[in-house]
């Protein structure tokens, strides 16, 4: 479903972020992208979100070549992926309900459907009682769950999570991971960038390790570092 072929990324300021990256991710996979800060995880995530284009190479998602996508097709593409951020990126002056409903309004969903779907998703992430609260009134874990609810509300086939547990304590992190696993079991592909060793080791999923912009390891049911097994 996702195919990267000889992807190179050099930022305009000359920083080389990715070198010759090639890998494939199948439908319904759960993949950890691990590596130290600056290894290229975020760049990969942003490339997959079509925030910018790689310097060279090809990226195909759902059979579509992102490098050949037209400008006006980008919004439509983004509707088929859900993105979860480390800093949540919620609208602080709107309620939890509105933050989630917002993603549906953007795609032009009818109000009837929004009123039905949003409570469903909020229940799924366990926030049905906080629908009327605003993000600053919530804990970090709760905010991340709102972000997750927003990401899945349009039923995307791919979830991209950039360090979703980066700002959370270990217990809360595990709650978020359980949610992501549930979403994955229902058939959604999940790609998660992280440098949280504990989580990666506990989940036993596929691990793609990056170092200085290169893939140094790619294994099924892997751990954070190779010498741990």
């Amino acid at each position: 479903m996702i195919e990267l072929f000889r992807v190179n990324m050099v930022y305009p300021n000359g920083v080389v972020a990715l070198k010759n990256i090639t890998f494939t991710i199948e439908r319904s996979e759960f993949v950890f992208m691990v590596g130290a800060s600056g290894a290229g995880k975020s760049t990969l995530i942003r490339l997959l979100g079509r925030e910018f284009l790689p310097t060279s190479g090809r990226i195909r998602v759902f059979g579509k070549d992102l490098t050949k996508m037209r400008r006006r097709e980008i919004p439509l593409y983004r509707r088929s992926i859900g993105v979860v951020f480390q800093d949540f990126r919620l609208l602080n002056n709107r309620t939890v309900y509105d933050n989630v409903a917002f993603a549906m309004r953007v795609v032009g969903a009818p109000s009837r459907e929004i009123r039905k779907r949003v409570p469903e998703v909020l229940a799924m992430v366990g926030l049905e009682k906080k629908a009327k609260r605003k993000p600053p009134e919530l804990s970090g874990g709760e905010q991340q769950r709102v972000c997750l609810a927003r990401a899945i509300v349009n039923q995307p086939s791919l979830i991209i999570a950039d360090e979703p547990t980066g700002n959370l304590d270990p217990d809360t992190s595990m709650e978020i991971m359980e949610l992501l696993e549930t979403i994955n079991i229902r058939g959604t592909t999940v790609i998660m960038a992280t440098h949280d060793k504990q989580i990666v080791d506990a989940m036993k999923k596929r691990v793609i390790a990056l170092e200085d912009g290169q893939v140094v390891r790619d294994e099924q049911r892997g751990a954070y570092s190779s010498y741990d097994i």
């Binding site: 919004p75 983004r78 917002f102 927003r150």
Partner: peptide
């Protein structure tokens, strides 16, 4: 955020 959830430019 709007861009990331797939809003078109005119939206």
């Amino acid at each position: 955020i709007m861009k990331w959830v797939g809003a078109t430019e005119w939206f």
